[in-house]
């Protein structure tokens, strides 16, 4: 089942990793993948590219998701790697601090944190979605802001510490994509470049 993956790895000459696949059981193989992508960011890119080329036929991904509980560390493989089925995805637009617009199609049920991490969009999520920081602060298009559920006290406590807080600010880890959020635009505010936001979409 790993032959396609092995082929890819061999072409990339990552033989040490591919060899390990020949000798171990499934769980160990998954551990190897985890270690491999955790080693450095380049590995992560290679790995993601491999997945792109093999499309969603690649089986172990869902297994990695199942194994997430076994690992204390973050796994880079998110649901996004399996692209949503035709007609089932929801569109999300990001406006980066530089003013660039990035459009992605995501699955219903993914949080904005999941989406940014899967696509390498620059949004730091320091506490990894545990409502202990405000680093994934985003500014939501007012049209969509009202569709979201009210933030909890805990989320508001963290938002109070966010830089450039606006009327439509939310934490990215708390916004979960739904069908009716299709087409949502969120702006990633800049904390270091002193850009002033007025709570409106920057376009």
């Amino acid at each position: 089942m790993f032959s396609r993956f092995l082929q890819q790895l061999n072409t990339k000459r990552i033989t040490s990793l591919s060899n390990s696949f020949l000798n171990n059981n499934k769980r160990q193989q998954i551990m190897y993948i985890n270690n491999f992508v955790r080693q450095n960011s380049r590995n992560k890119i290679i790995f993601n590219n491999i997945l792109k080329t093999t499309k969603n036929k690649f089986v172990p991904i869902t297994m990695i998701d199942q194994f997430r509980n076994f690992s204390n560390s973050k796994v880079f493989c998110h649901k996004e790697i399996t692209p949503p089925k035709e007609g089932e995805g929801v569109t999300i637009n990001f406006i980066t601090p530089e003013g660039e617009k990035i459009t992605k199609v995501a699955n219903v049920g993914d949080s904005i944190m999941d989406i940014t991490q899967a696509h390498d969009i620059d949004l730091e999520c320091a506490c990894e979605g545990s409502l202990a920081c405000s680093t994934c602060h985003v500014i939501v298009d007012p049209k969509y802001y009202d569709k979201l559920e009210e933030p909890t006290d805990e989320e508001n406590d963290m938002l109070d510490l966010a830089f450039g807080l606006t009327e439509t600010s939310r934490l990215g880890c708390q916004i979960v994509m739904r069908k009716d959020l299709d087409g949502i635009t969120v702006t990633i505010p800049s904390a270091t470049r002193n850009v002033k936001f007025e709570g409106k979409k920057i376009s």
Binding site: K74, A126, C127, S130, L131, A132
Partner: peptide, 9 residues
């Protein structure tokens, strides 16, 4: 403990 998640980075 949730604050310590930054250690993963």
């Amino acid at each position: 403990p949730e604050v310590k998640n930054v250690q993963n980075r």
